[in-house]
Design a protein around this nucleic acid. Sequence first.
RNA 1: GGGCCGCUAGCUCAGUAGGUAGAGCAACGCCCUUUUAAGGCGUGGGUCGAAGGUUCGAUUCCUUCGCGGCUCACCA
Length: 486
Amino acid sequence: MGNDEREVRLKKIEEIRKIGVFPYKDRFERNRTLLEAGGLAVGTENVRIAGRVMTIRKFGKLIFATLKDNTGKLQIALQAQEIEAGLFSFFKKYIDIGDFVGAAGSIFKTKLGEVTLDVGRFELLSKALRPLPEKWHGLQERELLYRRRYLDLCMNEGTLEKFEKRTRIIRAMRDYLDRHGFIEVETPVLQTKPSGAIATPFTTHHNALDLDLYLRIAPETYLKRCIAGGLDRVYEFARCFRNEGIDPSHLQDFTLLEWYAAFWNYSDNMKFTKELIADVVSAVNGKTEVTFGEKKIDFGGEWETWSVRDLLLRDAGIDIFQVEGGDERGLRKALDERGIEIEDSDKMGFGPLVDALYKKVSRPNLDGPVFLIHHPIGLSPLSRKNDEDARVTDRFQVVVNGWEIVNAYSELVDPVDQRERFETQAELRRRGDAEAMPVDEDFLEAMEYGMPPISGLGLGVDRFVALLLNEENLRDVILFPLMRPL
RNA sequence: GGGCCGCUAGCUCAGUAGGUAGAGCAACGCCCUUUUAAGGCGUGGGUCGAAGGUUCGAUUCCUUCGCGGCUCACCA
């Protein structure tokens, strides 16, 4: 008979229309959410609720069903003798799991004590064509969770709460910044020069202007222009795009929160960052400690601070500023002597080699939160040189669980120095490094008009959220991760 | 991109030392006024991810491909 559920339901819709009922209503007047209705006293009348039918249990002249809305679930009961004529058999014949219905009636308690709506009238609000996933296990397959997130959200306990929590985290960050005199701005996603980070951009084309454009890899240079214009404290939740590999801790599009404050240096920003994070964590979690897998990570109290140099001295036994010749050749020799292998190390300059070494020997072991400061200058084309030691920049990162959550520095505002750094990058780019930055004349010009001292920061929102949600894969904190089409 | 693993009914999963497949839920029919994983009786539903190969015979073995996950490398 019914060999295809979809066909069966399409036929039901036809029949429903034939008897003069429209299967897709435009509205329903509720006076209670399901959560509210579940808290009402027995005997309360004129309760009007709506929701999705999740389960149905039929007995000849009695039907129980469970409705669900975004506040919770409520059982409804239809009794053949008490409900309006015709409605009982309509429900029995035409209502399926997955349909949306509105119902009106009074509250009673079943023999087993469950608060239930005794339905006097109901309306089909929207008919579903496909069956919902199985009621005990919900949807399990990872691929289906991502491709059909709506089913994950409505079937799997905790998914909805997870995404609501993501929103609360972001709101808590926004609140904190607003309370501290920052204003939120929006800067271009389509840019003519990819800038503000070292990464491979996506390219696209504007037809009307016949112009090749890049999707931004960071909002940085535009936010600094804002500061140049006198917006002393700005931030943006910036969706950024990087045309690189996808893995559990990297997405091709991700949300980067950046903020910039005039007259701050990186040290002011470290203090502010630590306070913001501790505040957000306790606002959302009720305490500063987060459980991540087996680890307990506490964002309260003091955070350890390591310079890149000291950290590598500890973890690799190499003083990066005492290697022979003070350049990449000397560093490579030191690595060889200690048997530390780094792929393609012969193609790297000093800065990238230091970075590769750090990622190999140190970062995976940093559960954090840890401040990592004073990165070598070649790694940070937009950050300010340290006044005491020109080999390093006034930069810091926050590392948690081996993930770089935050990257920040005292911004470079010296246009002459900036031009030199751009030219170094441009040279790398000419030699085929797709990640190196091109010279950004427009940004340089803005800098030449004058910028105050600035400290700016980027925070990986998806990673931060993942930490607070105890999820290891960033795709699990994104509603609709990119999937290859089938 | 490399390595490993997975893909069987709408969903969750069994299974076949190679003889063209099963269960539960969902669906369809019947019985049933207190269930909440309702129950009972009955029925239908699958190109076993795709294509080639080996074989008398492939869902099972081999190869290639697709989609996904984990992992290594690279990037936040």
